[in-house]
């Protein structure tokens, strides 16, 4: 049997789901030597590695390209930000957020590009958070900065449940930590006469308590059944 024929036979057999041992037995029974069979397997592995390397290279180049395009867009927006009207700024933030979420959902659910889809959903949540602070700055909304993180956390949690995305839950965690760290530092200043809750809605804090509790409870219900005995 020629080398190329052996390679093709092995590839066909692997596609059919045969194990390496079975292929070895069949080729040995046909009179092929072990060295020839091993050589054919090595050729297939080398070819696959080359294809993987090519795919990886293309993926890296495309990712760098996407990042550079993204940086270019952000640079353009940043350079012209001051000249834009408030309506235009709000529209850019809202459209970018919706586009990210929509794109992420389509990529993940319809076209089965799970990782890219998750990345876009995460980007949408980050744009949402950045939008809260930008809009507060644009309209000179007075408030304690931890409130922004609470709103960001709650929105991310809601989106995480809607999109069934763990990456959004993982984003909500450090955002929540930032909000929690912000309040005690304000409370400590209360001993010096400063009122840390002057600009904060107490009801926002109450809603945050309820939302985080419900989120924890719902996640607890989703724990796999085989782990239930440990709870």
């Amino acid at each position: 049997m020629e080398n190329q024929t052996i390679v093709e036979y092995i590839q066909r057999s692997l596609t059919q789901g045969k194990s390496k041992e079975e292929i070895y037995k069949e080729l040995l029974s046909q009179g092929c030597s072990i060295d020839v069979i091993q050589d054919a397997f090595d050729q297939i592995v080398t070819k696959e590695e080359k294809e993987d390397t090519q795919k990886r290279t293309i993926r890296i180049i495309v990712t760098i390209g996407a990042i550079l395009v993204g940086v270019g867009i952000f640079s353009f927006i940043a350079a012209n930000w001051q000249e834009m009207t408030k309506i235009m700024k709000v529209l850019i933030i809202v459209i970018a957020m919706i586009a990210s979420y929509t794109g992420g959902w389509f990529l993940r659910e319809k076209w089965h590009y799970e990782k890219t889809g998750e990345a876009l959903l995460l980007l949408g949540a980050i744009i949402y958070g950045a939008g809260i602070f930008l809009i507060a700055q644009m309209f000179h909304i007075r408030g304690n900065w931890p409130d922004g993180f609470i709103l960001w956390m709650m929105g991310t949690i809601v989106m995480a449940f809607a999109a069934e995305s763990f990456s959004l839950f993982y984003l909500a965690i450090p955002v929540g930590i930032a909000a929690i760290i912000g309040y005690p530092s304000g409370i400590l200043k209360a001993f010096g006469g400063y009122n840390p809750f002057l600009l904060t809605s107490s009801f926002l804090l109450l809603v945050a308590t309820i939302v985080t509790f419900i989120a924890g409870w719902l996640m607890k219900k989703r724990i796999p059944p085989e782990l239930k005995e440990f709870y």
């Binding site: 949690i157 929540g176 929690i180 309040y183 804090l205 308590t209 509790f213 924890g216 996640m219």
Partner: peptide, 16 residues
């Protein structure tokens, strides 16, 4: 995730 959110809810309760 649930451990972190329960922890947050307790902290937020205190702050609320």
């Amino acid at each position: 995730v649930s451990q972190f959110f329960f922890l947050f809810s307790v902290f937020f309760l205190g702050i609320t």
